[in-house]
């Protein structure tokens, strides 16, 4: 086997305060390579803030984050830049560069950070689009011409451009219709299974949690409330978690009984 089972992300007692309000008060967890992990929590529990802290966009008040062997808030800028090429991030609304076509968007990291021979550049861009589940004719469209789901896929294609070891997704299925959302789940799962990418996502989508995710981390009351497989999480005796998943039970009661 040539797999590399190792810790890829280490979040160590993160504290975040905005003025008096403590958003995180000692949040810790580690992620293993090749897993698909979801971060859930109610509104205002600081999921997005935590994600921004992990990828180095926002400084935590205290605590350490080690991503791909680099201490995100202490290492030199050169090391950080080298590390940034090894992970991809999909922002909630895609954050595609609006002045460029989809193909040019995907080409940005490829042109900046990889010496792709000219003959291979177009095929590689098309491959990224195909890996994100987009038709080749999307390549020449502007982001403003795309639907929400396609914009998210294009954003994934750009995040995948450098074939990152780790991919962060901020609410990948929010705002998508159920069919598109399930297709998106499958896509994310195949990135983990086929390409061996480690995926960490924030989601509110119960279907995503119940079908494709390996592990769930629950953020509540400024701490990690629960951490484990979805079955473990369902057993946790917590009011918020119970009500969170009870929505699902109601829906299932009408259709097939919950197993």
């Amino acid at each position: 086997m040539k797999e590399r089972p190792e810790t890829i992300l280490e979040v160590d007692s993160i504290v975040t305060r905005f003025g008096e309000q403590a958003v995180h008060d000692g949040v810790s967890f580690t992620l293993q390579r090749g897993t698909l992990t979801a971060l859930i929590g109610g509104s205002g529990t600081g999921k997005s803030v935590l994600l921004r802290e992990i990828i180095g966009l926002q400084r935590p008040t205290d605590g350490q984050i080690r991503l791909l062997g680099t201490n995100v808030w202490q290492d030199t800028e050169d090391n950080l830049n080298a590390m940034r090429r090894r992970f991809g991030m999909m922002f909630q609304d895609g954050a595609l560069f609006s002045s460029m076509t989809v193909a040019q968007n995907v080409a940005v990291p490829l042109k900046e950070h990889a010496n792709v021979p000219h003959a291979l550049l177009d095929p590689l861009i098309k491959l990224r689009l195909a890996q994100a589940g987009l038709e080749p004719d999307v390549a020449e469209k502007m982001p403003s011409e795309l639907s929400g789901g396609m914009r998210k896929r294009a954003a994934i294609a750009r995040a995948l451009a450098l074939e990152p070891e780790m991919l962060f997704l901020d609410e990948p299925t929010s705002g998508l219709d159920p069919t598109t959302a399930r297709a998106f789940d499958k896509l994310v799962r195949s990135l983990v299974d086929d390409l061996g990418i480690t995926v960490f996502l924030i989601t509110h989508d119960l279907d995503t949690l119940l079908t494709v995710v390996d592990r769930v981390i629950v953020l509540a009351k400024s701490k990690v409330l629960a951490d484990g497989t979805i079955d473990d999480i369902l057993k946790v005796d917590d009011e918020w978690l119970q009500s969170y998943f009870s929505v699902r039970t109601v829906i299932d009661a009408r259709g097939e009984p919950v197993s």
Partner: peptide
């Protein structure tokens, strides 16, 4: 699987 569409010229 994606080779054909990847090789089609943009």
């Amino acid at each position: 699987e994606h080779l054909e569409s990847a090789r089609a010229p943009i």
